[in-house]
């Protein structure tokens, strides 16, 4: 299982209009340098969501880094379980007759 880990990214915007991620800061504050990266286009993430994807080499391993233009956030696939599903809530039908209009 994996869960999404939102990271902050130091990014180089090149004169040709491409983006190149240089380093990421993990949620616990550790900073990892990206030695090389290649742009893959859009990909569905293993953890959650989908976005533009860079395959980055970090400490000798190839790991994907994702960016969503909808939320503007960057994330990676982290180890661990995803957040548990919410619990079902009770639902009481509200009848119109119960409604009292406000005092005027």
């Amino acid at each position: 299982m994996s869960r999404p880990v939102f990271v902050s990214v130091r990014l180089e915007m090149t004169s040709s209009g491409t983006r190149r991620p240089l380093e990421v800061t993990w949620e616990d504050g550790r900073v990892f340098e990206i030695t090389s990266s290649s742009y893959l286009g859009r990909r569905a993430a293993r953890s959650a969501g989908s976005g533009e994807c860079w395959l980055c080499r970090i400490e000798g391993q190839e790991v994907p880094l994702y960016f969503s233009s909808l939320t503007g956030r960057w994330w990676m696939d982290g180890k661990g379980d995803p957040e548990p599903p919410p619990r079902p809530q009770g639902y009481r039908r509200v009848k119109d007759r119960d409604y009292k209009p406000p005092e005027r």
Binding site: A44, G49, P82, E83, V94
Partner: peptide
């Protein structure tokens, strides 16, 4: 379910606001 994969494991529905 894509945004929250945990929803895949339970019956879920997108529904409007009852209020």
């Amino acid at each position: 379910m894509l945004a929250r994969p945990a929803l895949r494991t339970v019956p879920c529905a997108v529904a409007g606001d009852p209020v």
